[in-house]
């Protein structure tokens, strides 16, 4: 069945964000002959439409007021784009935008949204939205009978779209009123990412020996991305003075549940594992193949961290 799909896009540096391109890629695959359109809001949106690969039509507003996301303003625009595009499927990134626009758009259009999907698949004409739940222990697949079906989609769920940008550009109204005023925005400080909130935690243990070893751990974390990776430490490493107590993961420290936990030179004592066993995926780097940590890890590298960590840093930088 053909699907008319609207992608609620986001701009990043005047161009569609990588996630927007992924959504467009996904939309291309799901459209099955239907039309794919994209909504782009903010300064330079009209220009960016040309880079929105995979979209036939773009609904844009160049109003710079959209640059700062304000839910109510975006909502009005999105509602108008849905109406004009006649979309029966709306895809939004699981981002600051998607988290707010998804549910409210669904409410305004008397339909439903599946949040944080990792896959959207066409099963015999019905779209199936699959998303993790129960802390990643389970996956749930939904269908939405009402139209449009809305989904917010996790990054990296689709391959980015290829091909030319939107040929047709439709202007949307400028930003309207909002009851919520955005007063200001602050960047997180360099060390601002709290270990409990990080998507990725890279932890070092006693096996690192001296504080110098920890610099490698920090380098690895920043290679993964300072906005999502934080540095943790086992109690032994904190005791050695390699790491501040605020970074301690374990029974007497922080309990973290990141998507990815990379344990370097950590033996996996129960004290420590109590703090990280809720992580979705644990990767262990340890010299001792019998180390306890491997019984918790999904992936393991048996080897000396001194060789493995620099290689990881190099490879992560390429991503």
């Amino acid at each position: 069945m053909a699907n008319n799909i609207l992608v609620v896009g986001e701009l990043e540096g005047g161009a569609p964000s990588p996630t927007t391109l992924e959504l467009l890629g996904g939309a291309q695959g799901l459209a099955a002959g239907g039309a794919v359109s994209v909504m782009l809001l903010g300064a330079g949106a009209s220009g960016a439409a040309a880079q929105a690969a995979g979209a036939a039509k773009a609904f844009v507003s160049d109003d710079a007021a959209y640059d700062t996301f304000n839910g109510e303003q975006w909502l009005t625009a999105a509602q108008s784009a849905v109406e004009q595009s006649g979309a029966n499927v709306v895809l939004v990134a699981q981002s600051v935008v998607g988290r707010e626009v998804g549910p409210r758009l669904a409410s305004r259009l008397n339909t439903a949204v599946a949040m944080d999907c990792v896959s959207v698949a066409d099963a015999g004409g019905t779209l199936q939205f699959t998303r993790p739940c129960y802390g990643g222990n389970a996956l749930a697949t939904y269908t939405i009978a009402t139209s449009p079906a809305i989904a917010t989609v996790r990054a990296k769920s689709f391959e980015p779209a290829s091909g030319g940008g939107a040929g047709e550009v439709v202007q949307l109204a400028g930003a309207g009123a909002s009851r919520v005023a955005v007063l200001g925005k602050e960047k997180a400080e360099a060390t601002g990412l709290q270990i409990q909130d990080a998507k990725v935690v890279v932890s070092g243990g006693r096996g690192l020996g001296a504080p110098e070893g920890f610099q490698q751990i920090e380098a690895l974390a920043s290679a993964i991305g300072s906005d999502k990776a934080a540095v943790g430490a086992s109690r032994a490493a904190v005791d050695l003075g390699c790491s501040p107590p605020s970074q301690q993961v374990g029974l007497t420290g922080k309990v973290v549940t990141p998507d990815l936990y990379i344990a370097v030179a950590i033996s996996g004592a129960s004290q420590h594992m109590a703090g990280c066993s809720g992580s979705k995926v644990i990767v262990a780097v340890n010299r001792d193949k019998d180390a306890n940590i491997f019984s918790f890890a999904k992936y393991g590298i048996v080897g000396d961290w001194k060789a493995v960590v620099p290689a990881l840093i190099e490879e992560f930088k390429k991503v």
Binding site: A106, T111, A112, V113, A114, Q128, C133, N137, A138, L139, A140, T141, Y142, T143, I144, A145, T146, A284, F294, S295, A297, K298, Y299, G300
Partner: peptide, 17 residues
């Protein structure tokens, strides 16, 4: 409005890879 079709546990290999 959301119809749950299937709730399942993703397959995990028990042992470390």
């Amino acid at each position: 409005r959301l119809q749950l079709q299937k709730l399942f546990i993703p397959e995990k290999s028990g042992r470390v890879e």
